[in-house]
Nucleic acid binder design. Structure first.
Lengths: 314, 314
DNA sequence: CGTTCACGTGCTCATTTGAGCGTACGACGC
DNA sequence: GCGTCGTACGCTCAAATGAGCACGTGAACG
């Protein structure tokens, strides 16, 4: 009787969606109103969602992307993944998400190993007081003394510890030493070795990564020159993790340099039960891919754009 | 046991919303997962919608704003109202909506009276073939001959008629005449009077309005000079409806001019059972207000911005 | 011309959901 | 310390919804 072109049915779908979502009528009422059965109304509503006519969005600074998270977990065999939607201040959102994740982490870690840097500092800021009760925070890579920037390094660990009603153990060592002997000497030093032992015994690690370019905080802090970094890039470096430069496969690009770097080794990180990797920003896609594919982390906290980059890699 | 700050509950709300809308889990499952009762899940979901955390949008060229439509109906005692959301080509969307409205209009009009202009032309374009079966389309105001623009005036009526499997009756007269005697003579002319009689007998009218400024199509067509319009504005004109300039109260600004205008009178429009007024664009807010408040129309088809302007008037 | 297949339809039934209600708990004033 | 109020809670019950099924229709094909 009444011929139904596909365009007509789309128009009908729109009317139904309006009545259902804007006017909160029941599917029954809508059916009566528009002269269709309520089952058809239901079917068209399902279609409307599938075809994107009806878009449901969760607008909130702490919103997440569970679908992408699942894909990441499955694709890379991660224990967990946290992905926040794109927004104007992604870095802060990701830090917030990492703080939330840490707070919700069960069992609550008694010893937490952390790296340092802008990202970690931001995570510390977003943690709320009492996120844990009596946590021991251990620095897992050196670099306290040389850092000029206020409010980083030691204060990051201290803030996380204080907000978790515990105490911080700092690693009193430069990040990278000039000579191998010095590095060996300091690593076997009673104090430093003690800290590294505690770090190795941590229940969980929380760390970020740096890009391999002149903007690196390791350059900024004076441990490496711009030329050093350029040379590392030439050798295939994509970025650094706890002070150690790695290539796309997650291997140290320069074994010599790696030996002169004080802190937890990459293998210890790989062996860890819980290694939470926090990474945000388009510049860090490559290093993020290296970390995730080489299984340096068991949990990733990142933004949607980075997650998409990870997933689209063949 | 677990203290719930308002921020915590908001975070919980967000998690629930994600699981419900993105992962389509049932409220029960979510409750079990997050350790709350399903009733709390339901309540928080309601809140999430109320507080705007969850936003449901209908993205479609033919979407409408039923809430605003209801307000318009109630506020101005309209028989019906159609409001389309803001978009980049509002004018086309409104024309589409008018065409849809006309198509869905029951009883199907046997005689339809129309004005002419850019808006009406666009409505004609958006009508689909077979929107009616055997409709008679009558022009309700003059202006055929002088119009220089291709694809307007007579072709508008012809297109609407042809798509409705009927025929058009044109009003063979200028819109405005220079001398009153000429106007009276032409109006009593057998042909013209016949058309006007048919126009008066229409079951429904469809018309738009023009702004009172130099961009008016009446100026463009040579019926009025820019000075004439400026003078009308000085007298309080806000725009024209079927060729007749009215003030904010819906009265003709210049009775002399009004008598020299050939076509359906405003009173006939006011008395009509179905007078569909199509108006789009920010420039037409004033004339729209005049038409609606002075009850020149029984149905309005417009955009969200115009509707908002109408509703915010005290 | 008959057969098959895909699809849309209206239905039954189980699940899911929201409205309404009595209750417990905490804040506040006395 | 005690009563009162408001709020949030868990629950009952009825309404609303989605999954699954049998049927009819129309198109493609032999």
């Amino acid at each position: 009787m009444t011929p139904q072109s596909s365009e007509d049915s789309e128009l009908l779908t729109v009317r139904i969606a309006e009545l259902y979502y804007d006017e909160n009528k029941t599917q029954d009422e809508i059916g009566a109103l528009l002269g269709v059965t309520r089952w058809k109304v239901g079917r068209l509503l399902t279609q409307a969602r599938e075809r994107g006519i009806v878009r449901i969005e969760i607008m909130h600074p702490r919103a997440r992307r569970l679908g992408i998270e699942r894909e990441l977990r499955e694709r890379f065999g991660l224990r967990d993944a946290v992905v926040v939607p794109v927004s104007d201040d992604v870095r802060s959102r990701v830090a917030q998400a990492a703080a939330d994740y840490l707070t919700a982490l069960r069992p609550v870690p008694r010893i937490l190993g952390i790296s340092w840097g802008r990202t970690l500092d931001s995570v510390a800021d977003h943690l709320s007081i009492g996120w844990a009760t009596g946590v021991t925070v251990v620095q897992i890579n050196g670099g306290v003394s040389l850092n000029r920037r206020p409010g980083t390094a030691s204060t990051t660990a201290a803030e996380i510890a204080q907000k978790g009603r515990g105490h911080a153990i700092l690693l009193p060592s430069p990040a990278i030493l000039e000579r191998l002997e010095t590095a060996r000497a300091i690593s076997t030093d009673r104090t430093v070795a003690g800290v590294l032992d505690r770090a190795a015994a941590a229940n969980a690690y929380l760390y970020s990564a740096g890009v391999a370019d002149s903007s690196s905080i390791l350059v900024d802090s004076g441990y490496l020159s711009e030329e050093d970094v350029a040379e590392l890039v030439r050798k295939g470096a994509v970025g650094d993790v706890v002070g150690r430069y790695i290539d796309a496969n997650g291997n140290p690009v320069d074994p010599g340099l790696d030996e002169r770097t004080v802190g937890l080794g990459l293998e210890q990180l790989r062996a860890a039960q819980t290694a939470i990797f926090v990474v945000a920003g388009d510049a860090k896609h490559d290093i993020a891919r290296a970390v995730v594919t080489s299984k340096l982390c068991s949990v990733i906290v990142t933004d949607e754009s980075t997650a998409a980059a990870l997933l689209e890699a063949s």
